[in-house]
């Protein structure tokens, strides 16, 4: 999830969470002149891992139903998967952010195999403006990790926003006064 239409991403291994890292380009423009495929209202995050990767008749089998219950201003939905009842809410992505479904472009595949941790090229296949996340045991709440992930956006902004000369000056003057 990022702003803008195209960006270069680099994940060098300086964080304690990652390994050696890799460098790549993510192209968020839809291919050709066609409009982007919009998956808004069709992206679901389930509380399980399904060991299958490929197309699936989701809308024929997975049937979320609205309930009368409201959780933190969001309408609670119910659905079933593999005999289990799920409870979920649809959350919009914060303004200025969009979700993208990325696909590794084939041409970069060979190149990155040749040099491990090498150059990757990613293409956007679809976009979405919201997503529905589902819990199995508990009602969705603002304490769920997915909702709390959105906190990162403001922290990230504060960390990475360029510092203006005015801000520098005022910070210096505060420091000066403290000395």
């Amino acid at each position: 999830m990022e702003e803008g239409s195209s960006l270069a991403a680099s994940c060098p291994g300086r964080s304690n969470g990652g390994g050696e890292g890799s460098t790549g380009i993510i192209d968020l423009r839809p291919p050709g002149s066609s409009p982007a495929v919009d998956l808004t209202d069709r992206v679901h995050l389930l509380p399980c891992s399904i060991k299958h990767d490929g197309p699936c008749p989701v809308s024929h089998y997975f049937k979320p139903k609205q309930t009368d219950v409201v959780v933190d201003d969001l309408c609670l939905k119910e659905a079933c998967f593999r005999g289990r009842k799920l409870q979920g809410v649809t959350v919009s992505l914060p303004p200025g952010y969009r979700g993208y479904v990325l696909d590794k472009s084939s041409e970069s595949g060979k190149r990155s195999e040749a040099s491990e941790g090498g150059f990757n090229r990613w293409l956007s296949r679809a976009e979405f403006g919201n997503l529905t996340f589902w819990n199995h045991d508990s009602l969705p709440s603002p304490d769920d990790p997915l909702i709390r992930c959105f906190h990162w956006f403001s922290v990230s902004n504060a960390l990475h926003k360029p510092v203006t000369q005015a801000e520098l000056d005022s910070a210096m003057s505060v420091q000066g006064r403290n000395d």
Partner: peptide
């Protein structure tokens, strides 16, 4: 392995694809 802020949000840095 990350700081608490990330652990609580299950935010992991993905460096290999």
């Amino acid at each position: 392995g990350r700081c608490k802020f990330f652990q609580a949000r299950k935010l992991q840095l993905v460096s290999k694809f």
